[in-house]
Simulated scan of single mutants.
Amino acid sequence: MEKGKIVSIEDRIPKLKQLRKSKANRRLVLLLSLFFILIACVLYFLSPLSYVQSVQVEGNRYITSKQIVKLSKIKKDRSIWKVDTGSTVANIKKNPEIASVKVTPIFPNSIKNTVSEHNRMAYLSNDGKFSPILENGSVLEELATGEIPVFAPVLIGFKEGKALKLLLEELDKLPVEIQNAISEIHHAPTKTDGYHIVMFMNDGYEVSATSRTLSEKMIHYPSIVSQLDPKVKGVIDLEVGSYFKAYKPAEQKEDTNEEN
C-alpha cells in the first residue's frame, strides 16, 4: 500500500457494503408500505367502503333478528366507525325482554349486535292468546297472531296474583330440563288447596301437584318416569307422596287419537 493512501473498509470488505445497501432497501420498502397503508386507510374511511352493509345479531332466542335490527335503528349511510353504540344499545333495550346488548364494528363494513335476553318462564293463556312471563315476573304483551309459545309451559286458568307468583317462584327453582318437559299447567284449586295444579308433560304423562311443593317434588320427575312403562300413560300424583295411576283403556285410546 502506497504511503498516505487511505483505502475504505467498504472497498476492502464488499459484503459489508452489500449489507448496508440491503438495510437501506428494506427501510425504503417499509416506509413505502406504511405510506400506502396510510393512504388506503384514508381512502377506506372516506369512501362508501366503510359504510354499514350488514347488521348481524347473535344471542337471541325469542326475539327475531329482524326485530332487533329494526330496534337498533342503525343506518346504512354512515361508516361503521361512526355508529353511536350507546344509542344503539339504548334503542335495543327498549324491548323489555332484552337484558344486555354489546355492539361491535366488524371490518370492513358490518355491525354485530350481541344480545342477552331474559328467560321466558311461561306463557299466560287468555282466550287463545299468549302473554310471555319473564323470569323477573313481568307479564308482556300478547304474542302476535300466529306466533307460537316456545321453550316454556303455557299457563291456563291463572290470573296475576299470589297463585301465579308462587308458581313462577317454584318453576324458577327447577332445572331447565324439567321446565322444558312441561307443556301446560292448569290452575285447578280445590277446597283444601287453593294452589293445586294439573300439569301435562311433553312425554304424555299428567301430573297432579301443588305449587307449594312443586320444586321439591318435581325434581324427582325424571327418576319417577324412568321406572314407568313408557307405553302406559296416566297420572303421576305428587300432592302428598308420589304414586302413579294409569289411564283407563278408554282414556288411553282417546289420548292416542288426540296425538294422532
Rank of each mutant, 00 (worst) to 15 (best):
N202Y: 06
S138W: 08
K5G: 08
S87Q: 14
N260W: 13
L28A: 03
I219A: 05
V235C: 02
N25L: 14
D172V: 03
K233D: 04
V29H: 09
I9P: 00
S65R: 02
S100C: 09
N119W: 06
I9K: 00
G204A: 06
G194D: 05
K233E: 05
T114K: 13
A188K: 13
I219W: 09
T213C: 03
I37S: 10
S211R: 01
I68Y: 02
V176Y: 13
N126K: 15
E160Q: 05
I133G: 05
G157Q: 13
R12C: 02
L124V: 08
F158P: 00
D11K: 13
G234P: 10
L228T: 08
N202W: 03
A209N: 07
V207G: 03
I236H: 07
L134D: 05
S211N: 04
L214K: 04
S47K: 04
N113T: 11
Y195S: 02
K5W: 03
K73H: 12
S33Q: 05
K23W: 02
G204Q: 10
H118E: 05
K253S: 06
G204D: 12
F151A: 15
V7H: 07
D127G: 12
I148G: 13
S54E: 11
V57E: 03
H196R: 15
N202S: 12
Q67P: 02
V139T: 14
R61I: 14
K3E: 08
P230K: 14
L228C: 09
S87T: 12
N60S: 11
D229L: 06
M199E: 01
A250I: 10
K17Y: 04
R212K: 06
T85G: 06
R78E: 14
E169Q: 07
G128I: 02
V240K: 00
A144E: 14
L71I: 07
G128D: 05
P14S: 06
E177P: 11
G59T: 04
S125L: 15
E147G: 11
S226V: 06
R12D: 03
L168Y: 00
K17I: 03
I39N: 12
I80H: 02
I133M: 01
R20C: 02
S50Y: 05
A250E: 13
Y247F: 13
T190V: 10
K129A: 15
S125D: 12
T210V: 01
I197A: 08
K173T: 09
K191N: 14
T192M: 11
P132T: 06
D237H: 08
E239L: 08
P175H: 14
S242A: 13
T210W: 03
Y221C: 03
L71E: 03
K233S: 06
E258K: 13
F200Y: 15
I182V: 15
V29C: 10
C41H: 04
D127K: 15
S215Y: 06
V101N: 11
S208F: 09
V235K: 13
H220R: 15
K82W: 02
P222H: 10
I80W: 05
K70Y: 07
F200I: 14
K231Y: 00
E2C: 00
I13A: 11
A163K: 05
K165Q: 01
N257H: 09
E117V: 11
M1E: 06
R212H: 00
A246V: 00
T85P: 10
I185H: 01
K15A: 07
E169T: 00
G137Y: 01
A152H: 09
